[in-house]
């Protein structure tokens, strides 16, 4: 995949050199060998640090919100899942299409850093990645490590619906095919099969672990309110105390608030320090939207789309009452 990183760097350098954008948001190698880190390149020299590989987990589109009121043009690297956020932010009027250059990254799945850390020598330098059937070979200066993709990819990548970005101005490499997608809602169905009391006990246990660091909210491209209701001091919608009641209010309110705007990037789930399976909450809403109203994953459409805020005469849900 080294060629693709090179192609990305050249693209970024050209955009910067020709002053087509003010800066490029991409990925650079991280502080440990199994991670990358978001990177802001302002000059062609800085663009030399960019990489694109199966460790590039973070959604970068969220950063565009930091510049939404600034007079800047930004290029941003997006994977298939991240691209849905571009569409959603445009539909939410948080992003103007002509203020962003979308660099599309066709993606065959991102490796789970926690899972592969046990397999890769922390002192090794990763030099490249190669695909071999169901496996991905991580090439390092201390030997190659072959990993089964189903075992080592992020869970979200096993049910990926968009390997190729649905919106992009420049595409790095050729369109790709991922591994066959599993049942997108298998985990939700397991929870649905529980009794209400069992489900309550399940989420009680999860929410009790929450430390309310708000990493889930802050990484979320759907969380684009100018001021979050949870930050308001007056009226105080959410108590500052960390307890089961307040934690429930936080998570359930947030889940409902991003309904119709959650593009299912799974970042809240991936980065939660307390491993709360937040994606299951959002997945339940996505499943209901799909089954009850025939609404696809938000951000799939390039044209104006507002899943929850729209009114349709052909709404498949009958008005029976």
């Amino acid at each position: 995949m080294r060629g693709l990183s090179e192609q990305l760097r050249n693209t970024a350098k050209e955009l910067l050199r020709e002053k087509k954008v003010d800066f490029v948001i991409g990925y650079a190698p991280g502080s440990v060998n199994v991670k990358t880190t978001p990177y802001f390149a302002f000059t062609p020299e800085e663009a030399e640090n960019l990489v694109w590989n199966p460790l590039c987990a973070n959604i970068l589109v969220t950063y565009l919100l930091d510049y939404r009121y600034d007079d800047v043009k930004v290029a941003v690297a997006v994977k298939g899942c991240d691209a849905r956020a571009i569409n959603r932010l445009i539909h939410d009027r948080q992003l103007k299409r002509d203020k962003v250059v979308v660099i599309g990254l066709p993606c065959r799945g991102i490796l789970d850093a926690d899972k592969i850390a046990a397999k890769i020598d922390p002192r090794a330098t990763i030099t490249d990645f190669e695909y071999a059937g169901d496996n991905i070979v991580v090439k390092t200066d201390k030997g190659d490590v072959s990993l089964n993709r189903k075992e080592y990819l992020l869970n979200k990548c096993l049910v990926c619906e968009d390997h190729n970005p649905i919106v992009a101005d420049i595409v790095i490499g050729e369109p790709v095919q991922g591994i066959a997608a599993e049942d997108n809602f298998a985990e939700v169905k397991q929870l649905e099969a529980l009794s209400p009391a069992e489900r309550d006990a399940y989420w009680e246990k999860q929410f009790n672990r929450c430390i309310r660091c708000y990493a889930c909210r802050n990484i979320c491209p759907a969380c684009n309110c100018k001021e979050c209701c949870f930050d308001q001091a007056e009226p105080q919608w959410l108590g500052k105390a960390n307890n089961s009641a307040e934690n429930h209010v936080f998570h359930l309110t947030r889940a409902m608030h991003v309904a119709g705007r959650c593009i299912d990037c799974g970042e809240c789930d991936r980065i939660c320090p307390m491993d709360i399976p937040l994606r299951k909450l959002n997945k339940k809403i996505l499943k209901d939207m799909k089954e009850l109203f025939g609404i696809d994953t938000p951000g799939k459409k390039t044209e104006d789309d507002n899943p929850i805020g729209s009114y349709r005469l052909d709404d498949p849900d009958e008005f029976n009452y």
Binding site: T62, I211, C213, Y214, A215, N218, I219
Partner: peptide, 10 residues
């Protein structure tokens, strides 16, 4: 620039 402003680290 890349900080999300969450409280995870603290």
């Amino acid at each position: 620039r890349k900080c999300l402003g969450c409280a995870c680290c603290t």
